[in-house]
Amino acid sequence: MKMLVTRPDPDASDTAARLGALGIEGVPCPLLVHQTLDVSLPDPKGFAGLVLTSANALRALDERGVLARYRALPVYAVGNRTAALARDMGFATVTSADGAFADLVELLAHAPLAGPIFYPAARDMSAYLGKSLAPFGRMVITAEIYAMNPVTELPDGLAERLGAGEIEAALFYSKRTAQTFVRLVERGLERPARARFGVLCLSEAVAAPLLDAHFVRVGLCDHPSEEAMMGLALSFARDQNP
């Protein structure tokens, strides 16, 4: 059993290794490429916390050489893996929402914050934290510190491998990744092949572009986490080879 891993590096390689431990061959195929942006960043003084919706924000701060200036701030992370990376990078006070964006909003709405929060974000945001927290009286200072740029083509021979059924499924962690995949296979993967191909998605929002493009073998996580994605992949593999 081979599964395509579409998330960006270095996460794609990590996920492929986790699949390997389950007896599934992960084929890394990052469809978004990280780019750190040269934007002005605020002084940490006066902030009540640092909010993270992706580990890519930490990587961007590190690439900019400014990570140390924010380490004294409490961190509020969307999920456990981002929280774990924050701890590995030296942050002492880290709280995880252990879920999706809505869970993070709920956490921040009721957190004991006595000032504004700093949000190093992606340039192409799917949801706006400041707008979501405004009804709760929370002030969010956002800096678009990184971009996730879509690739313009699939690796050589991949479309043919997908069409031949050599790779039986793909893992999708974001809506933009799913949209990129749909665009890249629009002319190279016919509808019968799409009907056979498994698309394993972190959420309904991630799955939506794939459903619109006539991928019908859709698997959804019961919780937005890497552990749930691994469970979904294992269940799919077992269904294929009972």
Rank of each mutant, 00 (worst) to 15 (best):
G79N: 06
G79W: 04
N80I: 03
N80V: 05
R81G: 00
R81F: 01
T82E: 00
T82S: 13
T82H: 04
A83L: 10
L85E: 14
L85D: 06
L85H: 00
A86Q: 11
A86K: 09
D88E: 15
D88V: 11
D88H: 10
M89W: 04
M89S: 01
M89Q: 10
M89G: 00
G90S: 08
F91L: 13
A92I: 09
T93S: 15
T95K: 14
T95N: 13
S96R: 09
S96P: 12
A97M: 04
D98K: 14
D98M: 07
D98E: 15
D98T: 14
G99K: 03
A100C: 09
F101A: 13
A102R: 11
D103T: 06
D103V: 01
D103A: 14
L104G: 05
E106N: 11
E106Q: 14
A109N: 09
H110T: 15
H110L: 10
H110M: 08
H110D: 13
P112H: 10
L113K: 09
L113A: 10
L113N: 08
L113I: 13
L113R: 09
A114N: 15
G115C: 03
G115P: 05
G115E: 04
G115N: 05
G115T: 04
G115I: 04
P116S: 12
I117F: 08
F118P: 05
F118V: 06
Y119T: 06
A121G: 06
R123C: 05
R123T: 06
D124L: 03
D124V: 05
D124I: 01
M125A: 15
A127K: 12
A127M: 08
A127R: 14
A127F: 07
Y128C: 05
G130H: 05
G130E: 13
G130D: 15
G130T: 08
K131N: 11
S132G: 05
S132W: 01
S132A: 15
L133I: 08
A134H: 14
A134W: 11
G137I: 08
R138Q: 11
M139V: 14
M139T: 15
V140R: 06
V140A: 07
I141N: 11
T142R: 03
T142V: 07
A143R: 12
A143K: 02
E144V: 03
E144Y: 01
E144L: 03
I145W: 02
Y146I: 07
Y146V: 07
A147W: 00
M148G: 04
N149P: 02
N149S: 09
P150A: 04
V151N: 03
T152N: 09
E153G: 02
E153H: 12
L154G: 03
P155Y: 04
D156G: 01
D156I: 07
G157A: 09
G157H: 12
L158Y: 13
A159T: 13
A159H: 12
E160S: 10
R161G: 00
L162D: 02
G163L: 10
G163E: 12
G163A: 14
A164S: 12
A164R: 15
A164N: 13
G165F: 10
G165K: 10
G165E: 05
G165W: 11
E166Y: 08
I167C: 06
I167P: 04
E168R: 15
A170G: 13
A170Q: 02
F172N: 00
Y173L: 01
Y173N: 02
S174Q: 05
R176Y: 02
T177H: 03
T177N: 00
